[in-house]
Design a protein around this nucleic acid. Sequence first.
DNA 1: TTTATTGTGTAGCCAAGGCTACACTTTGAC
DNA 2: GTCAAAGTGTAGCCTTGGCTACACAATAAA
Lengths: 145, 145
Amino acid sequence: MAKLPAKLPAEGTQARRFGRVRTAQSTALLEDYAELIADLLASEGEARPTDIARRLGVSHATAIKAISRLKRAGLATARPYRGVFLTEKGHELADRVRVRHRLVVDVLRALGVPSEAAEADAEGIEHYVSETTLKAFAQFLKSRS
Amino acid sequence: MAKLPAKLPAEGTQARRFGRVRTAQSTALLEDYAELIADLLASEGEARPTDIARRLGVSHATAIKAISRLKRAGLATARPYRGVFLTEKGHELADRVRVRHRLVVDVLRALGVPSEAAEADAEGIEHYVSETTLKAFAQFLKSRS
DNA sequence: TTTATTGTGTAGCCAAGGCTACACTTTGAC
DNA sequence: GTCAAAGTGTAGCCTTGGCTACACAATAAA
């Protein structure tokens, strides 16, 4: 974990926001892995490192490293040669991520973004949408249906 | 720059999207720096590493390292102890980023997101909005005014 | 049951983006 | 003109998230 900067007192709005983005970036990847693992567990009954790697387009070594970060974060468990599983915390995260993803995609589509682009962009956008914004999105969708 | 993965042929949609997100992430920071430098040049007449660092809430060493990446990318120039300047390419990038940022903020606000959250979230979101989505956003704003 | 294929895990390398520590310029106040 | 303060730059360290290469385990085929 990166050490906290020497000066914590809010240096200004911009600095605070920039910091938030950095934090989000570091969790974005764990979120993606958690979601994919939940997905594989649901559809295949198991989540193996190689499958995960293939789905994400990375090498299996990269996937395995990410999995150990998940384990360290208390999101997953894995026994050698026996696949990966999510902890309760991991499942909760995956659920939250899935809901958020759908919401972002739906809003984009409601704004007139073609499905393909909506899905693709949501993949990046979703990690930076705050609770506040999420609520507004839900509200917006409800109001126009 | 990270080397290209061995297998380029699209492994599948998910892998392609994941890859796009990774690419966007690597340019996000350069975009933020370029925008800030343009901002400082416009408002202060000069962009000094320490100011940049303060505004972003990072150490000056970090800012200086980022500036040399900007130089390597052909986006900025700098002479020792003489501040940072943007190349034409850098200015173009900064302009594009600024326009995109405004558009994202405006759309979020139009969706009912409070200004503060809209500004903060846009900081993260903007880097992942494709041209297609941007066009849809512009269209949406125009249609409802 | 041996063996080939596939999967897993580890080690080691790289670049990015953080940090602190230290040395060197510049600049501004006497 | 000197000197202290502020700014700049470099070096070195860390973690993350990529990669390849190689060794080991499991499984399927002969």
